[in-house]
Amino acid sequence: METECFTWEELEKLAYVLKAVAHPNRLKIICLLSKNGEMSVSDICDRMGCSQALISHHLTDMQAKGILLIRREGRNAFYSMASDHVTEAMRCMMKCTK
């Protein structure tokens, strides 16, 4: 099955990524990382005012789905965006909602 502009496989991949970021906390994390580059879990928690358990859950899931990169240094974990594609898509979607 194919639409005019996307194959079925492309649509499945797009839905997978959209589901992975479809939460306000996850979108806020993406904004923070896009603006600040690499950040530690504790820095993200401080900026968001959420518990470490909640933030870690979101970070781990987005990292597992290829949206975020992780770098470990001792007991600390530092996250960054895997690419700027998700942020670009967010900007595009915001234009569509205006």
Rank of each mutant, 00 (worst) to 15 (best):
I67R: 01
Q52T: 11
A15Q: 05
R26P: 02
A77I: 07
M90P: 02
V17P: 00
M90K: 04
A77E: 13
L14W: 07
S42H: 11
A64K: 07
G74N: 05
L14A: 12
A77D: 10
L59Q: 03
A53W: 09
M90D: 01
Q52M: 08
H58G: 04
C92W: 11
C50P: 00
A20L: 03
D43S: 14
D84C: 03
L59N: 04
M39V: 09
G49Q: 06
T60E: 14
F6P: 00
I30N: 01
L27M: 14
D84L: 08
G66P: 00
V21G: 00
Q63G: 00
L14D: 05
L59M: 06
L32M: 08
L11K: 10
K98A: 12
W8L: 14
R47Y: 04
D61Y: 09
R75K: 07
S34K: 15
L11Q: 13
A20W: 03
L33H: 02
A20E: 05
E2T: 08
T3R: 05
A22E: 10
D84G: 09
E73Q: 12
M94T: 06
L69Q: 03
E73W: 08
T60K: 15
H58P: 03
S34H: 15
E73R: 10
C45F: 05
L14C: 07
H58N: 12
K28H: 15
A89W: 05
A82L: 09
K28G: 08
H85P: 00
R47D: 08
E2M: 09
S51E: 10
M39F: 11
K95I: 02
R26Y: 07
M81P: 00
M90Q: 02
R91V: 06
I70R: 04
E88W: 01
P24S: 15
K98G: 06
T97I: 13
M81S: 06
Q52D: 10
A20N: 02
A82N: 07
C5A: 09
A64E: 08
T7W: 12
K65N: 08
H23N: 15
P24R: 14
T97K: 12
L59P: 01
G49P: 01
C50L: 12
A89N: 02
M81C: 12
R72E: 11
S40E: 13
E4C: 06
